[in-house]
Design a binder for these strands. Sequence first.
DNA 1: GAGGATAAGTCAGCCTTGTTGACATTCCAA
DNA 2: TTGGAATGTCAACAAGGCTGACTTATCCTC
Lengths: 168, 168
Amino acid sequence: MPDNPISQSGQSLLFLTDEQLRKGIEAMFFAYRGFTADPDRILADMEYGRAHHRAIHFIHRSPGTTVNNLLSILGVTKQSLNRVLRTLIEDGLVESRVGKQDKRERHLHLTEKGAQLERSLSDAQRDRMRAAYRAAGPVAVAGFRQVLEAMMDQDLRRSYDTLKDRGA
Amino acid sequence: MPDNPISQSGQSLLFLTDEQLRKGIEAMFFAYRGFTADPDRILADMEYGRAHHRAIHFIHRSPGTTVNNLLSILGVTKQSLNRVLRTLIEDGLVESRVGKQDKRERHLHLTEKGAQLERSLSDAQRDRMRAAYRAAGPVAVAGFRQVLEAMMDQDLRRSYDTLKDRGA
DNA sequence: GAGGATAAGTCAGCCTTGTTGACATTCCAA
DNA sequence: TTGGAATGTCAACAAGGCTGACTTATCCTC
């Protein structure tokens, strides 16, 4: 029975059919649009974009993080990040402090103004996430997290876990 | 007990804390990077990008779809889509056929060459999705889909359901 | 049949955000 | 003291979004 999606052990593998996988792929595509929609709307009114949101999020998450650390989390070139950081610093949302041990490093912090924007962005994003979590329930949420974690590249998984542990 | 994340009904709502929501947000961010990584690698060697991938995916998914329909699914302007479609048609990956009932419409189909690229892209993406699904198991996968569907905007949810039903 | 609505395509120009490459500065460590 | 690491900057470029204006062809309705 070569077409029967049942494993040798007798466990159903229907969730691994190409059709199911394609549905998962499309779900990721459409859901990610929703995921970014609310912050994008807020940022569209300002002179900022999604790249600024990401920088602000992770600076808020890890105050005092270095540029290099941020670079590896965001996965962009230092030139791209620098352009974003420069505008955030110029506009007084982010503060760059020379390192004490290592003066080559710059430690990044949100100013009060930056923290305000961070709050309005993450409030909007959390509201949607909360509604989705509430609609789906705790069991679904656990599964959601499991699948997403299994989908990450190894190095990103490490970044994710580091961030995860720190706040736990 | 204002700080106790337990609902009045007695059911635990620990999964709705800001901390849990933030973890979900970061999981989406990192997982989406993995989600697009494999097709991106394939496309980087060619003159195409993620926008071409999306067009190819949905033309494959709904052969004969019109430009307007594709537009609403992808959520971009016709100018953006047109730029992508033009190159795909010029390169012989997509065929544009004048509508029979309504001659204003163009119905889009993948050529054999286009179908080949679609296969190599979706194979790569499915491989990762399959590994994630397998690692997480069927219960987690059901939850994953539930949360993603609850995260979509209403109009995208409708597009998603339409695509979902057609293939089922 | 005329006129408005619709589908598609195109041109021009702009923005964000990514890329490479080259180069300067600063500072730590061998 | 010298090499390498971390940071920053400049220039140039590309993908892929966007708006606005416009044309062409077709359809539908009055």
